[in-house]
Design a protein around this nucleic acid. Sequence first.
RNA 1: GCCCACGUAGCUCAGGUGGUAGAGCACUUCCUUGGUAAGGAAGAGGUCACGGGUUCGAGUCCCGUCGUGGGCUCCA
Length: 662
Amino acid sequence: MGLEDRRKAARTGRDRHATMRDSHRRSARLVSSRPGGAARARASRAEGTTVEHRGEEVAEDPVYKIRHSLAHVLAQAVLELRPGSTLGFGPPIRDGFYYDFILSSPLTEEDFPELESRMRKIIAQNQRFEREDLEKDAAFERLDAMKEPYKREYAEELFAKHGIEKLSFFKNGPFLDMCEGPHVESTRQIPKAAFKLKSLAGAYWRGNSDNVMMTRIYAWAFGTREELDAYVKAYHDALARDHKKLGRELDLFVIDEVIGKGLPLWLPNGTVIRDELEKLIKELEFKDGYQRVSTPHLARAELYYQTGHLPYYAPHMFPFMELMELAENDAGELAAGDRVKEAYALRPMNCPHHHRIFASRMRSYRELPLRLAEYGQVYRFEDSGALSGLLRVRGMCMNDAHIYCTEDQIQAEFLKVMDLHRRVYEILGLTDYYMRFSTWDPDDPKGAEKYVPNPEAWERTQKLVRRAMEESGLPFVEGKGEAAFYGPKIDVQFRTVTGREETASTNQLDFAVPERLGLSYVGSDNQEHRPYVIHRAPLGTHERFTAFLIEHFGGAFPTWLAPVQVRVVPVGERFAEYGQKLVDELRGEMVRAELDDSSDTMGKKVRNAVTRKIPNIWVVGEREQSDGTITWRRYGRQDQETVPVAEARERVLAAIRTRSRE
RNA sequence: GCCCACGUAGCUCAGGUGGUAGAGCACUUCCUUGGUAAGGAAGAGGUCACGGGUUCGAGUCCCGUCGUGGGCUCCA
């Protein structure tokens, strides 16, 4: 495939994604925005900045009403400031609300004070929210008079596809909006000091990248000023834990534009964390019967035609490397000709390589489940606008493994995988996550493009995964329509310090690709059978997972993970030799220890060690040297103790061995 | 990829209305040998992201490119 073809494939691929995405966002919208009628309660996924799925209890929440009403107040203020603007959606969200506009002329964040003050004036006017339900014709007439084409587009859909009878409108003061409510009775019930405009953003109409880009204004809003202040303060405090900021301060990684965007360089300190995580998971996987393999970052492009991933993944792959056949040019010299001799691709995933290992010889049912694990480096051509620190990169290392098994083994294997997750999170002290059971949507009109067409297999595998999840006792929510194209998955969702939700881990049950690649094993019946494949990655990628850990620990890693585990600080130069001896002994035990033999003062040395968030500082001076002790200062603690060297060393070794949270 | 904002020394930032760059920390050298979060002095370090344009003159104004951030789409 030539570059231009690839680009074309990329474009179509992207278009297809957009369309598919739109279809499930549309169904989500309906739940939240349907005017009148009971909002259908639905398993809620913890929404970030998108729409809340509402149940009745949510709708009655006073803060929800305040946020909903504030959105109207904001829109009114925007229309005052930018007459002729048109409206998109303006729903309440987790910590406030937003509203989308097509602005008649641009706004900037510098306009926020002006907007906020207009909003307060509107609130002070004590405008009543009055509801009016209109039947179809009247509703369209109203919307045309309002000159709100986007609202009208949505209304048409509501009447046509969802069979609603009436459309509800809310009027407060001079502002009229098509909306399902509910709202406060009058603007006076909105606390004037409990909201704050947050940011300006672009957002596609209906979340579809084929549509126009609207301007979204995000705002925080709460029931009281105190809650708002506390929230905003917590938000700003959290920014100190941002992995990008700490990555720089603690020399963990850099992203160098000369190397390329989204291609992080791991510095020695960051590499320690990666290595420790690898050690951890290798131990756990070994105990669970995984075998390690090692495969190249490249493969012939042919491989991706075989797997059937290509149409799906082309937009996310780096361009193929094409080796041209040699040919004589006009000058009669041998040079690269027009014909592609061979094409290679940087791999965007590890599974095809592992599948080829499975296929490398005849397999017997006696070998199953076969668990092949690799820390596999992959490269994905992510949209430039999606890149973000270590959270979204173009070169990443996955904690990947593929479990080849029979249908009878799926349940037990899935349980083991989920238990592996549980153990990892427990060791790391991660509790702030939730699991999402991502299933196919048989009613999805775009289902033919989205899913492997095998309803029976979908039902069967989903049942197996669901049962495994229920047995694992891990709580999960269901994400209908979120499945991979080849099977259901379990995603683990985390939130970053800035509140953005990300998937840290994804586990998929694949009943389709083994078929495409013709994988098989010989059963006890001497017949060939198709294995199932479980794709799983408890630590996701090093890049993203480390980003979470940096933020989770605020850069203050427990001893076992810390880049420097012990820093020995001699009180004066005379004690450097004693300090060096301690360091040598620790390093002899594979402890990452170092001596601060700088000419800084005591206070400065301690400050330096604390600033680097080193978990253990051993201070040594006259007393320690003569007594064979150290004075131990732990990160984040003021109290300290003087301990015999042998005991101190043993305690550090134990903390490392047990991976204690200390 | 799209919308918006930003891009001054390694880092954090100053540099009204255009007149060819500053601070603190870090770094280097010297002095200080100190008991728990910054001892002192000197020094080095910037083609103000890059490329055009306007102007007698651009870090400062305009355009483009690249990069970063916040969102959207997508996703580990």
